[in-house]
Design a protein around this nucleic acid. Structure first.
Lengths: 220, 220
DNA sequence: TTATATTTAACTGTATACAGTATTTAGTTA
DNA sequence: TAACTAAATACTGTATACAGTTAAATATAA
């Protein structure tokens, strides 16, 4: 038998703080473009600058922050340019994952319908958005490519910031629960390709309103 | 006019070191699974541990390294599992980028053929591999989605480690210059879809030999 | 000798100090 | 007042110190 080292799951401060910061950013705790003061933030979080900086470095690698030498870390701006780049990514990645997953299991089907029902009855944007994420991850549960799933999760986060900022200004728009149902129906008929097509459509439907909002937001 | 801050392009040690390390890893300077000794490496590179650790954190976010709390940083192993996950990514991403690019310009066409010719005459694996990367980036030059291009570059690097390790053991295998030509020909006929199909095929053709090699390498 | 316990050394994780660089504030001139 | 300059302050980048943990070496028992 191979001598597999037991790995210690205890995280360390750097990684803890990275998770904390990630949530703070995606939940809109910082405003876009904001400069991060390392001294203030470190005392606020009760840690020294070293692990904080390592966390900031991690977040910069994920492009949630950017780094300007000798000026520090900044929260990434929400821009039309970035949005137009990251938004189509899921329409590329998710259908590929669905193709690898194939038809969901019986349990997955009922779970998908349960989540979709819950979405219909939810008005709060944040919970609605996480239900949407949950639904999409359930849809591709059988995809065994962990890297692909990881990428999808990454772009879920990056795109959420836009949805959040948008829905703070505007009213909640009807999120595509009917499209979800179309995907489920197609899969039940074993029609993977039209399921992929509906999925692609579902992942592009939000684009226009947010794009318009980004355009009309030159007031800043 | 908006007050656009001139950005200072001078990098800092952390970022310098990150680039250095990235090249060291992708070029096979470290062996897979190797543990990184921060003290030794920092003196070797002539910097203190702090910027080195920030660089290591960056590389860990890119999954070139992994981090085990209180044990340190390790060079990621080459595993069949990871290979099977990352290898298909380019077959997903590249055709999507080609669809966004559309038909290449006249200059691109000649550049593509020039690079491909050069590839045919090159026996050294490393230069051949970078010519291949160059060719593929030229193919999708008109894709205006920078994020998508960035992802492709990321996976180029991650996959290269496998190709390199493989070609150190085995003989150089004929790289798919004929497939490249098929792609060019299809595009000249304005047949984007079959170009995408050839591209997908090109990006899956190397898989089997490397996979076999990974399988048969249980000697370790 | 092999296996287990104990001590020692090495290494990582975090805090802190310090130097050099931006940024802000106050002061000066038109 | 507005524009410009100079001094003061704040902040980042890097080095270093130290504590706690892991890994290695040595000693002890089977």
């Amino acid at each position: 038998m191979q001598n597999v080292k037991k790995i210690d799951p205890r995280p360390n401060i750097s990684e803890d703080i990275a998770n904390t910061l990630r949530n703070m950013i995606f939940d809109g705790y910082f405003s876009a473009g904001e400069r991060i003061n390392e001294v203030h933030l470190s005392t606020e979080l009760g840690v020294s600058r070293t692990p904080l900086r390592e966390a900031l470095t991690t977040l910069a690698a994920e492009e949630a922050l950017y780094h300007s030498p000798r000026r520090g870390f900044f929260v990434s701006e929400l821009s039309r340019e970035e949005f137009e780049d990251i938004y189509p990514m899921r329409a590329i990645l998710d259908p590929a994952a669905l193709r690898l997953s194939g038809r969901p299991s019986r349990e997955s089907f009922s779970k998908l319908e349960r989540i979709n029902e819950k979405m219909k009855g939810t008005r709060d944007f944040k919970t609605r958005a996480s239900l949407d994420d949950e639904w999409h991850l359930e849809l591709i549960r059988d995809c065994n490519n962990r890297v692909l799933i990881g990428q999808i999760k990454l772009f879920m986060n990056r795109i959420r910031r836009y949805g959040l900022a948008f829905h703070q200004d505007r009213q909640v728009v009807e999120m595509s629960t009917t499209e979800h149902q179309e995907i489920i129906d197609a899969l039940k008929k074993d029609d993977l390709e039209s399921a992929c097509e509906w999925l692609r459509r579902n992942l592009t439907s939000d684009k226009t309103p947010i794009l318009n909002w980004l355009e009309g937001r030159k007031t800043k």
